[in-house]
């Protein structure tokens, strides 16, 4: 692979990793508008985000859930299903307020990107 292409590849990987990490918390909050258990969230996040190097580990996603819970943005309950404990997470009232603001910001970012594209078209 030529050197330039390799550099581009590295940059792209870096950018994707940064993007994934940047929106991880946001994505989890969106997913938790509906009550979901830990495993479910892990699988959904992995399928929705672009693959990164290093790959997103369970610990990273689970730690975000802990952080959101500590900040009372998410509520959780435990349920024993087939002898295994399952933890269910759901957005709290405080979390909903925050998510609404975050979605607004995200939309304005998308608009800004579109505008930037438009004004840059030759």
């Amino acid at each position: 692979m030529p050197r330039d292409e390799h550099e581009e590849e590295v940059l792209l990987k870096k950018w994707r990793a940064q993007l994934s990490r940047g929106i991880l918390e946001f994505l989890v909050l969106i997913l938790l508008q509906k009550e979901r258990h830990g495993w479910d969230i892990l699988q959904l996040v992995r399928s929705l985000l672009p693959p990164t190097e290093p790959p997103l580990a369970d610990g990273t996603i689970y730690n975000i859930l802990t952080r959101l819970k500590e900040r009372e943005l998410v509520s959780s309950r435990s349920k024993i299903i087939e002898g295994r404990m399952r933890r269910y997470f759901k957005l709290s009232k405080k979390g909903k307020v925050l998510l609404t603001e975050m979605i607004k910001d995200w939309k304005s970012v998308i608009i800004s990107i579109s505008e930037a594209e438009e004004i840059s078209e030759i």
Partner: peptide, 24 residues
């Protein structure tokens, strides 16, 4: 929380699933 839910077999299983400290 993770251990109570996913029950890794041992430490190496935990490192693999939860992600190594470097990965974290």
């Amino acid at each position: 929380d993770y251990i109570s839910e996913f029950k890794p077999k041992d430490f190496s299983d935990m490192m693999e699933k939860f992600g190594s400290p470097q990965n974290f």
